[in-house]
């Protein structure tokens, strides 16, 4: 069989040469699957984030499932009480790596104005947090801002790095 000329062997622009990390990160960051741990007012505002006016699917993150095992982005939207804390921890632990956490609103970030016997003063006492959103509740635009930041963060990761440093070092009050 006669070999073709060199230019015939070229596959034109149907092949892209890139790094594996870049390809994986590209796919990952534009198809985030959020698990919405919505407990309170912020959960209602998250409904507006998902509904047609603000439309979370513009960012490729519209597959809102309530199963942590299929999700890579945990959105904690609402106040976390001490009674809720073990459940939040369990949900986080069930999510496969790599995973990111958004703390949506004043209550999730710091307890908000519920400085009392029942409210956890910030979910970062239980699980590691990547992005904090201020507001009570935050506007949908603020949520998208933090979603874009998570996308930027995930674009900087490498598949060779199995566990992220700050997750490994994290110790919350429910970690024995």
């Amino acid at each position: 069989m006669e070999l073709k000329k060199e230019e015939d062997l070229s596959l034109g622009d149907s092949v892209l040469v890139t790094k594996l990390d870049t390809a994986v990160n590209w796919a990952r960051s534009y198809s985030m699957w959020p698990m919405v741990f919505g407990t309170a007012c912020c959960g209602i505002e998250f409904m507006s984030v998902a509904a047609s006016k603000h439309d979370i699917s513009r960012f490729g993150a519209e597959v809102v499932r309530f199963s942590p095992r299929q999700a890579d982005l945990l959105v904690v939207a609402g106040t976390i009480s001490y009674k809720q804390a073990p459940i939040l921890k369990k949900i986080y632990d069930q999510m496969p790596e790599p995973k990111w956490v958004i703390s949506m609103g004043a209550c999730a970030c710091s307890g908000g104005f519920y400085d009392n016997y029942t409210t956890v003063q910030g979910i970062d006492q239980i699980i590691p947090v990547d992005e904090y959103i201020a507001g009570c509740p935050p506007r949908p635009e603020a949520f998208f801002d933090s979603l874009i930041r998570i996308q930027e963060k995930s674009n900087r990761e490498s598949i060779l790095e199995k566990d992220r440093q700050h997750d490994r070092d994290f110790k919350g009050f429910l970690d024995a």
């Binding site: 309170a40 106040t79 459940i87 519920y114 016997y117």
Partner: peptide, 8 residues
């Protein structure tokens, strides 16, 4: 069972 959003 309730109380998961009891915030005082």
């Amino acid at each position: 069972e309730i109380g998961y959003l009891h915030r005082g």
